[in-house]
Write a protein that binds this DNA or RNA. Structure first.
Length: 271
DNA sequence: AAAGCACCCTGTACGC
DNA sequence: TGCGTACAGGGTGCTT
């Protein structure tokens, strides 16, 4: 499932392949993939656009074009890849962008939850997102101020993109484990040192995962823009490890459901 | 403000 | 073998 580190890795890969390329045409094979504008306008407006840069905001891939922006949210199973046009199309490829070098940018998404936006200003989509957890100007002070205003439980809060942009189920569970905090802890119950540990945990987990180019689980769901798997799965302590021994205390990892999301933690190490 | 849930989808894992 | 069903997941929107 693409979260911040996976989306960052995809965006970096796409940047090397796409910057300077011009999109000559587009084929939308599953219309609901296009969130905005309507498919006809989308296909018309993207013709002739040149890629200026590729970046990331939260879990969105942000493709800056010469007159507008293409934003892509991969949701659970979306993939973006640059392939030769001779490469056979598979049935899960929902949008194809023909490039001026004979290759294609393809958006493939088995679950069909992913969405593509063509907009004038990226803020139209990203303005409701919380801060970037890895940004240099996102300080402990900022985080403490945000946290102490919240009374909800930590796990749903970390998944809330309006609170903080980029965490998903894997890195939320991993960050709470590293911080030694129980997923059901109320945000406003944290002592300053708890807040500091959570801040440091989120940043270190995400940075390490970016460095390792994301997490590819056994289901093989995530690969980067070159089709390569990530390597953070070998660093995972709790996510998907129900019943396995905790790496710190050897007690069993437990799984509970919080806010409708499976949540993995060590009941001995996290409180 | 917080929490619960349905919804969107399909592949996979399960029970029978 | 083959069917049906539950489930996972991110985000949004609705209701309590």
């Amino acid at each position: 499932m693409p979260e911040l580190p996976e989306v960052e890795t995809v965006a970096r890969g796409l940047a090397t392949q796409l910057v300077g390329r011009t999109i000559e045409s587009t084929t939308v094979r599953w219309p609901r993939t296009i969130a905005v504008p309507c498919v006809r306008d989308f296909e018309a407006r993207i013709i002739g656009r040149t890629v200026v840069s590729v970046g990331r905001r939260g879990k969105y891939v942000v493709v800056q074009l010469d007159q507008c922006y293409l934003l892509i949210h991969l949701k659970m199973s979306g993939r973006l890849m640059v392939l030769p046009q001779e490469e056979p199309l598979d049935k899960h490829t929902h949008t194809v962008f023909d490039l001026d070098d004979g290759r294609q940018l393809r958006f493939r998404d088995v679950r069909k939850f992913g969405r593509v936006y063509l907009i004038e200003d990226p803020a139209q989509v990203t303005s409701s997102l919380g801060p970037e957890p890895l940004a240099h100007d996102f300080t402990l002070d900022d985080f403490q101020r945000l946290l102490s205003r919240r009374s909800g439980r930590l796990k749903p809060l970390l998944l809330n993109q309006q609170f903080l942009a980029g965490l998903g189920n894997i890195y939320a569970d991993e960050s709470l484990f590293v911080a030694g905090l129980h997923p059901l802890r109320k945000a406003d119950s944290l002592a300053p040192e708890d807040q500091a540990r959570l801040y440091a945990a989120i940043r270190s987990v995400l940075q390490r995962a970016v460095d390792r180019r994301g997490t590819t689980l056994d289901d093989g769901g995530y690969v980067d823009a070159a089709g390569e798997a990530g390597e953070y799965q070998s660093d995972i302590s709790v996510y998907g490890r129900t019943g396995e021994p905790c790496s710190v205390c050897t007690g069993p990892i437990e799984r509970i459901v919080v806010g409708g999301r499976s949540t993995h933690y060590c009941p001995h190490c996290q409180c």
